[in-house]
């Protein structure tokens, strides 16, 4: 399988640790990914708010480029990017006039586009279970987490065509492969408020308060996420959430790629675990039982 990789804007900025952990996880799993050359932003909700055609053509420029490069699948770790790719493709496939207009903008044919996927889709669908299980170097069986999927891993179902829109299981499944305990909770597909963090932070604080309270009630040591916006909001707003609740809140927010990478023995620094506002390392060191002497995690701490 020839995988193209589309990091997206957040992963080159505020969510650089997701990028590093994702790339190092692919390396550890011996998966070759090639960056999509000259990629452009997916346009998110902004481009379609300015012009409908721009909002469809912008994400599809990237998918058309992936086709030219011969990629069979285009992997985007940001679930919002994946949604905008799949949604744009869905729209042109159901509207022939729109299809011809977008083809005129992009000056290329949009038939036979490669599938755009979130990394969780690859891990679940492309047979990685044995490869991950056989590479485990750290015992994480004491770690209790909740999987937080947010909006666009599986929603809307007819566009995303992956997992269950109300009760997704893919992240719980891949985390269970490395022995992590994933708890049941009721906020796994709630919205974190996304980009409103920049414009209406009080709304994001409201939404994230409910998510974090629910995770703590479930007894989670950490929240595991698969989207840069989810991470940014849950990780950076805990000070305001603590003020709102009148008690201290300090729950680490981890990317699934960091948890898998940690279990496979990748150093925390490589996984970007030192870049979070809420430091996850004390928790990981408390819960981590090394599989043998010379564990890379313990080496780094003693050094």
């Amino acid at each position: 399988m020839k995988y193209g990789y589309y990091p997206g804007c957040s992963l080159e900025g505020i969510s650089v640790e997701y990028n590093h952990s994702m790339r190092s996880l692919f390396t550890a799993l011996e998966v070759t990914i090639e960056d999509l050359p000259d990629w452009i932003c997916c346009g998110t909700l902004a481009a379609p708010s300015i012009s409908r055609l721009l909002g469809i053509a912008t994400p599809l420029w990237n998918v058309a480029k992936a086709k030219q490069e011969g990629f069979e699948q285009l992997v985007a770790p940001c679930s919002a990017c994946v949604y905008h790719f799949k949604n744009a493709e869905n729209q042109v496939n159901t509207n022939s006039k729109l299809m011809s207009e977008v083809e005129a903008v992009l000056e290329t044919s949009l038939t036979g586009l490669p599938r755009t996927v979130h990394p969780l889709e690859i891990l679940v669908n492309d047979g990685f279970e044995e490869r991950i299980k056989s590479g485990i170097k750290q015992d994480l069986s004491d770690l209790k987490v909740v999987s937080y999927y947010g909006c666009h891993i599986s929603r809307p179902a007819d566009v995303m065509q992956f997992d269950d829109p109300e009760d997704p299981q893919s992240m719980d499944l891949v985390l269970s492969w490395v022995g992590v305990q994933t708890l049941d909770w009721s906020r796994k597909v709630d919205c974190c408020g996304a980009h409103f963090s920049l414009i209406k932070p009080d709304i994001v604080v409201d939404l994230c308060t409910e998510i974090i309270e629910s995770a703590l009630e479930a007894g989670a040591d950490a929240i595991v996420v698969a989207c840069p916006m989810c991470h940014a909001n849950l990780d950076t707003r805990q000070g305001e959430i603590a003020q709102k609740l009148g008690r201290s809140i300090d729950i680490p927010i981890l990317y699934f790629s960091q948890v898998l990478g940690y279990a496979l023995g990748i150093e925390p620094k490589t996984l970007g675990m030192k870049k979070h506002i809420v430091d996850p390392l004390p928790l990981m060191l408390e819960k981590c039982q090394p599989w043998g002497n010379g564990s890379p995690v313990l080496q780094e701490v003693s050094a």
Partner: peptide, 21 residues
């Protein structure tokens, strides 16, 4: 605020295709 954000976002994309968050 939402109007300002979306317009500014696309303006930023026009600089070099990606946004600088």
């Amino acid at each position: 605020e939402v109007d300002i954000y979306y317009r500014g976002f696309v303006d930023n994309m026009r600089l070099n295709g990606k946004i600088h968050d």
